[in-house]
Nucleic acid binder design. Structure first.
Lengths: 106, 106
DNA sequence: TTGACATGCAGCTAATTGGCTGCATAATAA
DNA sequence: TTATTATGCAGCCAATTAGCTGCATGTCAA
């Protein structure tokens, strides 16, 4: 599950899609295609990956599929994984700096 | 640059390597190979990716290459990108909930 | 000096990925 | 009803990736 999220975030087009949805929720596929320089079907695949990772939720309205950003998984990742690297173990940064400066300054 | 970091984090083996280094800095390649069920050369490639993304820094000590986690890029990512999804736009979560509950409860 | 050890480098292969085209289906508009 | 529009689905292809093997290089210990 965490793996799906990281893999989904690994593609710049998919991050751009999340940014677009952050600006305005509920956009359709054809709206989201605009400006990406890519065919509709390719964008649809990217959106499917985002949906599979739980980052985007959808709602059908007639023949249009509205896309909504779901920020909760990203908040989870940030809290449960990334924070370990900046939070309680911040001392590691100092250890690193010390270790690197120890004896080679080339 | 941000792209390199996201791509580096997309692989579970690489995230495991970061976790290992978070537990103990300065491990050698052969130490890190242990427990991954993978050849040394493969692990070396993963470490090269992490180093290329700035997530790992290295120091040579004789014939051994010591690996150190660099938490700064992850903190950058968390601050400059991920926080937008939980912070100022937290209202979007409510908008999403409202939109999804609007008219379909199947 | 010689043998063992730590690593690097080049190249192979199978699987995955990210784009594409073509066609099908469902909903709206005329 | 018929044409248009929004989307889905299947399949193709080139590029990337993640593992591997084999060999070369440099360092340490006996």
């Amino acid at each position: 599950m965490m793996d799906a999220i990281f893999k989904a975030l690994a593609d710049p087009t998919r991050r751009a899609l999340l940014d677009r949805l952050l600006e305005r929720q509920g956009q359709t596929l054809t709206e989201l295609v605009d400006g990406l320089g890519m065919r509709r079907q390719s964008v649809a695949k990217h959106l499917a990956v985002l949906e599979g990772a739980g980052l985007v939720s959808c709602r059908w309205q007639g023949r249009e599929k509205l896309h909504y950003l779901n920020p909760l998984p990203i908040a989870e990742i940030s809290r449960r994984w990334l924070d370990r690297y900046s939070g309680e173990r911040a001392a590691a940064i100092l250890n690193l700096r010390d270790a690197l400066q120890e004896n080679d300054n080339e």
